[in-house]
Nucleic acid binder design. Structure first.
Length: 560
RNA sequence: UCGGGGAUAGUUUAAUGGUAAAACAUCUGACUCUGGAUCAGAAGUUUGGGGUUCGAAUCCCUGUCCCCGAGCCA
């Protein structure tokens, strides 16, 4: 469990402490994280999981993983496996407490019969459209279903025949008999069971009636001995029903506690929409590095530590919140800055020939792996007559304040020597294809005996030793306008640009990276943090950019 | 329109009748073998109006605005 960092206490802690004072649950704290296996977990799920598992951790309690799999047409085993894997990646653990709502189908069925016998549930023959009509609206009360007063015997018989599969989908439902005039729609005789002749990912064709969320969730919590059933404020109106069912059944009733929903700037988390992106091939899959899914963020290079840090730094309240995505970027920079080795990589190579360096001479210079952490040690990298530097690091028109290379200018090659540029070789179209330079033999290690100062330091790789790599630059899927501000009722898919991936081929990285393993993360100096893609082929190193560093030069330039 | 919930810097949260604060974001400056990182500094906040009180973000009254709810989804 991620125990190193703990979230500050929030209002839920106060509720629990109050329960502990009054002894309501005998000092127990037992929560559950209840995803529906109908998609992959995304960044907001990480926050919710952190609330559920975190509360149990903070009070020395337990948290179950329970899949809310009551709708067979949306759910798949692939998602169950994906969710479990992601949760483990985040560091959460539930011992042997992995449950499924579908574990309780038989019990739920028997409880439904109990409610029928108590005269609190009935089989209704209204069609979906009729049910809607009878339900009334915001200001007018609903009307009783004509089937509301069937006898217990008839209800029992009909319900059993529903279960046996005698009726087609949608022809009948089992409903709770509560109050069709109740101001809360959830209490207007809510549907408990619907007929669905569909194969369930776990129970196969054993059932053709499936419980609704309301008829399954509270009882599942009750069976598992959950004390605090945490959910978002969208379920506030469901709490009276949650409690009504437990009370009518005469079973233990947990306390439902609601917290505000979470959204992120420039991020769309809607399952339907993400699914659509995957299906329509706008992204390569659920784990596309641009996706807000946790498998996507992982592939892009985000660490579980950074994501947990984000969860701890953002609060929990009853207000719906929009978390700035910049905070996530801060968290990953914080984490990677400490752990990612600095390596040299040239994304857009420009050849440099050092004319006064012997053609076949190679010098292996020493380089520190992380200037802020000596324990990460040093490595040796080859320096030779032909090198590559970044195209962006040479400017013919070098403006004021430009510390990098230009005609006649001297810079330091990091860990190497000072070089001075004498000539830019151009092709027929006037593009610079090569720089002719000389080096100062006195400047080994980056300093000269005369102590002269060069302000610019560049990263570079030896042309003879460099390893070819492909670099993919990713940004958040959505660009401005912020999709959270989508005009009402419009299909934002038509309105919003999404970032395509930028693939840079012909990148050159220092030779030591040939030994890097998929998932390894690095800081390429000045260009950002990169993660070696897990799907990379052995022949070619593919790096995904996690997050860019702040480009201070362009800021300097903008000011002028 | 009916029911439920919410409102403190740009954002997310503290302050539980006693000096309104932190982090991120923003801006300024310093430093550096990258201009990154780091360090220092600045600006900015109680939804409006009334009331109680020596004293109100907090208690009372009253407005305003925002979110959720009419699935046989969860």
């Amino acid at each position: 469990m991620p125990t190193e960092t703990t979230a500050p206490p929030n209002f839920i802690h106060e509720i629990v402490e109050e329960h502990n004072r009054t002894g309501r649950f005998g000092g127990r704290v037992h929560t559950r994280f209840p995803p529906e296996p109908s998609g992959y977990l995304h960044i907001a799920h990480a926050k919710v999981a952190s609330i559920d598992f975190g509360l149990a951790r903070d009070f020395g309690g337990k948290c179950n993983l329970r899949f809310d799999d009551t709708n067979p047409i949306r759910e798949e085993t692939e998602y169950v496996d994906g969710i479990i894997e992601t949760l483990h990646w985040l560091g959460w653990d539930w011992d042997d407490r992995l449950f499924f709502a579908s574990d309780y189908f038989q019990q739920l069925y028997e409880w439904a019969q109990l409610l029928i016998r108590k005269g609190k549930a009935y089989v209704c023959d209204l069609s979906p459209d009729e049910v809607r009509e009878y339900r009334g609206d915001l200001t007018t009360p609903g009307r009783n279903s004509p089937w509301r007063d069937r006898s217990v015997e008839e209800n029992l018989d009909l319900f059993e025949r529903m279960k046996r599969g005698e009726f087609p989908d949608g022809s009948r439902t089992l409903r709770a008999k509560i109050d069709m005039a109740h101001p809360n729609f959830n209490m207007r005789d809510p549907v408990m069971y619907r007929i669905l002749h569909a194969e369930h990912h776990r129970t196969g064709n054993e059932w053709c009636i499936y419980p609704m969320y309301d008829w399954a969730h509270g009882q599942s919590d009750s069976i598992e001995g959950v004390t605090h059933s945490l959910c978002d404020v969208g379920y506030e109106d469901h709490r009276p029903l949650y409690e009504w069912f437990c009370n009518e059944l005469g079973i233990y009733c947990p306390q439902q506690v609601e917290f505000g929903r979470f959204a992120f700037t420039y991020t769309v988390l809607g399952k339907r929409i993400l699914k659509r992106f995957v299906k329509e091939g706008l992204v390569h899959g659920w784990d596309d590095p641009r996706m807000p899914t946790l498998v996507g963020l992982r592939r892009r290079g985000y660490t579980p530590e950074a994501i947990n840090d984000l969860c701890n730094r953002t609060g929990v309240s009853k207000t719906n919140t929009v978390i700035e995505i910049q905070l996530l970027e801060y968290c990953i920079r914080e984490d990677l800055n400490k752990r990612a080795p600095r390596v040299m990589a040239v994304l857009a190579p420009l050849k440099v020939v050092i004319e006064n360096w012997p053609a076949d001479k190679v010098e292996w210079v020493e380089a520190v792996n992380n200037p802020e952490d000596e324990s990460m040690g040093t490595r040796r990298i080859p320096f030779g007559r032909e090198l590559y530097i970044e195209q962006d690091d040479y400017r013919e028109d070098a403006p004021k304040g430009w510390f990098r290379l230009g005609p006649g200018r001297e810079v330091r090659l990091k860990h190497g020597y000072f070089i001075t540029c004498h000539e830019a070789v151009k092709d027929a179209d006037g593009n610079i294809v090569e720089l002719r330079c000389t080096y100062d033999p006195e400047s080994a290690g980056g300093q000269t005996p005369d102590g002269r100062v060069v302000k610019g330091t560049l990263h570079w790789v030896s042309a003879a030793h460099a390893v070819d790599a492909e670099v993919r630059l990713y940004d958040y899927l959505f660009t401005k306008p912020d999709p959270n501000d989508a005009p009402e009722g419009q299909d934002f898919m038509a309105n919003f640009n999404y970032n395509s991936e930028t693939i840079l081929t012909g990148c050159k990285v220092e030779p030591g990276l040939a030994a890097a393993r998929p998932g390894d993360r690095f800081q390429f100096l000045r260009t950002g943090y990169f993660c070696l893609d897990p799907d990379t082929t052995p022949e070619l190193l593919v790096f995904n950019r996690t997050v860019g560093l702040k480009d201070t030069w362009s800021k300097v330039e903008k000011k002028k």
